[in-house]
Design a protein around this nucleic acid. Structure first.
Length: 302
DNA sequence: GGCCAGGTGGCCA
DNA sequence: TGGCCACATGGC
């Protein structure tokens, strides 16, 4: 890794991977300002080892993903390469074997169409733990459009930007950027007082070492991990499962109370009403161990 | 103008 | 444990 300090990073991808499907998914939410997307590329600033690297990712047939570093005066050295590769693998969830999920899903009445239509889509994740939690809290009980607006304001107010060729590439605020704030600092963004308390509270818990990503990741089970997270004020079962699904990659994480999930099930079953919790549990029986991917693909149908 | 939104905490029996 | 209710504000 020493003499490769210049030149792109090559990242192998599994067979069940479609760069296009993942770009199409990400293209729906560009207003959060954390990346820019073209027809066959994506650019984002990736925070690693205390620095922000501007990375352009493309696909090279038969090789995998190619990550180029755009700023000539800000190139990764040493261990940075490893961390950047890890970040990108995490982002596109490249280390999960989707074959068993697909095997189950193609016969499933709710998932069959979705896995055919979106074959190769990965559970595009939120590699940053704090971002995943904040995004969960921001999205609670408001419509998604407004949630993205709030996220954009949050990022542009408290995050860091990499300026390159007339464009800003934003990095999500760190817990230490938020921990010292007061509710009044967040009011101008049109965040409710309660949400502001939650965000600042979680930031403090992380900064002071009372909430550790490793502790959650190493929990013995989904239940245990959920308990650690829901001890935080502002993190209920929905947010906990959302974070476990999008960031910590628990395959069985399942935000069962999610309105989007309910709407998706209503849509794919052609029902005229949303399913009850009991009905969802019934639908989800065959998904055991794959609830996270099942949910992600159902969301994609909306 | 009314209902809904990728919920949660707090209170009560 | 389970059922209400306040919260809070934009989108459609």
């Amino acid at each position: 890794m020493n003499d490769a300090s210049i030149g792109p990073l090559v990242i192998e991808v599994p067979k069940e991977f479609s760069f296009k499907q993942n770009l199409d998914y990400l293209a729906m939410t560009t207003d959060e300002r954390l990346y820019e997307i073209g027809p066959d590329w994506i650019v984002r600033a990736i925070p690693v080892n205390g620095r922000n690297f501007l990375v352009k990712i493309t696909e090279e047939p038969d090789e995998g993903l190619l990550a180029e570093f755009l700023e000539e005066d800000n190139l990764p050295v040493g261990d940075d390469h490893l961390e950047l590769a890890r970040y990108i693998r995490h982002w596109f969830d490249l280390d999960t074997d989707l074959a068993p999920f697909y095997q189950m899903a193609e016969k499933d009445p709710l998932l069959g169409e979705a896995v055919k239509t979106y074959y190769g889509l990965r559970n595009v994740g939120i590699p940053d733990f704090f971002e995943a939690i904040c995004w969960g809290i921001l999205g609670q009980q408001i419509n998604l459009t407004f949630a993205y607006t709030l996220k954009r304001r949050f990022v542009e107010t408290f995050g860091q930007a990499v300026h390159w060729e007339g464009h800003d590439y934003w990095v999500f605020p760190r817990p230490e950027d938020i921990a010292g704030l007061s509710v009044e600092d967040l009011t101008p963004l049109q965040l409710s007082a309660r949400k502001s308390e939650y965000l600042i509270g979680v930031a403090n818990e992380i900064v002071e070492g009372r909430l550790l990503e490793e502790k959650v990741a190493e929990a013995g089970s989904l239940d245990e991990a959920e308990k650690v997270l829901t001890r935080m004020r502002g993190i209920g079962p929905w947010t906990a499962n959302y974070v476990l699904m999008r960031c910590l990659r628990f395959p069985d994480a399942f935000p069962i109370a999610d309105v989007g999930l309910h709407n998706a099930i209503k849509l794919v079953t052609g029902s005229d009403r949303k399913p009850s919790l009991e009905e969802i549990r019934e639908h989800a029986l065959p998904w055991k161990g794959f609830e996270a991917y099942a949910t992600f693909y159902l969301w994609r149908c909306l």
